[in-house]
Design a protein around this nucleic acid. Structure first.
Lengths: 197, 197
DNA sequence: TATGTTATCATACATATTGTTCTATATTGA
DNA sequence: TCAATATAGAACAATATGTATGATAACATA
């Protein structure tokens, strides 16, 4: 790939991200993007087929980075814990979200944030499906594992939304504590009050 | 209000709902809507300022109906339980969603479902804020009440999405049971294992 | 450095969507 | 019956999309 292409791509991603923090996704025009990025119309369409395409690539780029940056890759396409506990990994992800140079929070804060969080959740589902066992005891024993996985990743994404609405007032560790308080029994496999019988 | 206006409004709502089950919201044009509804362009704009306006009114219409249909209204703008337990009310809401003549599931199933569920969550937040007490005991005692409310309503909406993705395979009662399994400790106020101190 | 390749820009263009304005017609409520 | 008004249809300016063209500049390589 040409140096020019890399530069252009970066300029477009950056312009797109900047626009998203000011405008709703579906109100952003291609003209807005190419003006902000200082690239020609033809150039934009040489890199991305449509605006939706740009969106999709942006999401993949960001979340693949966030999650794999908090984990070690193993095998061809699976994630696994890199020694840390689930709690530590989740805290790490929160730090990543907050401190990324890519202005992730800016993107998630925008009026189209839901769109991105949907992609985010897809990644989390893959991640969590490795951590969550089929529970053996009530009250969770009758609940399908897929439901629990979806519930936990949905809760995480929901928490991030809440965090952003509150201007990131909580420290990642604190937030991680909240998350543990509401999902601990699921992630631990079982609540700590194992009352045999 | 004129009979004609009522009829026109109904035709537009119906056409919009039908289109949503085939097409993504932002790919639907005003032309599509007025063709499907068999109304003139002028007429559409006499009823709704923009397409977004139509969306908003559609959501308000649906969710106000779903929630108030499962509750008794009380006071000016607050909800309260109509005798039933939270569990019973939630089950009722699930029935409502599934069996409504307004094809709610059709709308929520569409590619823009997230958009609607966002509105749904707003209503649920109002509802749940009346049921959820500030917890007094670990592990929930240090967690802000607003977080818990948002977590529970987010989990409900998330569950509905999951339900739809699975083609409504579970009965509302069964689903309600899952929900209780993962949020019970919060809705009950405290987990049942009250270990004083 | 010289050279062929290719990414870029600016412009123009056909097409499609939006929201407004106008007039004529049809329906309504009294 | 009749005045009020909701509607349809068409035309319209303004804006957005995606494509095509030719000229220019930056690149990789030898």
């Amino acid at each position: 790939m040409d140096r020019r292409q890399q530069k252009t791509r970066a300029a477009i991603f950056s312009a797109f991200s900047a626009l998203l923090s000011r405008k709703r996704y579906d109100k952003i025009t291609v003209q807005d993007i190419i003006d902000e990025a200082n690239v020609g119309r033809t150039t934009f369409y040489a890199h991305f087929q449509t605006k939706d395409d740009l969106l999709k690539e942006t999401c993949t780029d960001i979340f693949e980075h966030v999650i794999s940056g908090s984990l070690m890759m193993e095998g061809s396409h699976d994630f696994s814990l890199s020694g840390g506990s689930p709690q530590a990994v989740l805290t790490h992800i929160l730090y990543h979200l907050r401190d990324s140079k890519k202005n992730i929070i800016g993107i998630l804060s925008c009026e189209s944030g839901d769109l991105f969080l949907q992609y985010f959740k897809t990644y989390l589902n893959r991640l969590l499906s490795q951590w969550i066992p089929q529970p053996q005891q009530p009250p969770l024993s009758g609940v399908p594992r897929e439901f629990l996985i979806d519930h936990v990743s949905g809760s995480f994404v929901n928490m991030v939304q809440w965090w952003i609405r509150n201007n990131l007032r909580q420290a990642p560790e604190e937030l991680s504590g909240y998350f543990w308080a509401v999902t601990g029994p699921i992630l631990e496999g079982q609540p700590s009050n194992i009352q045999s019988l």
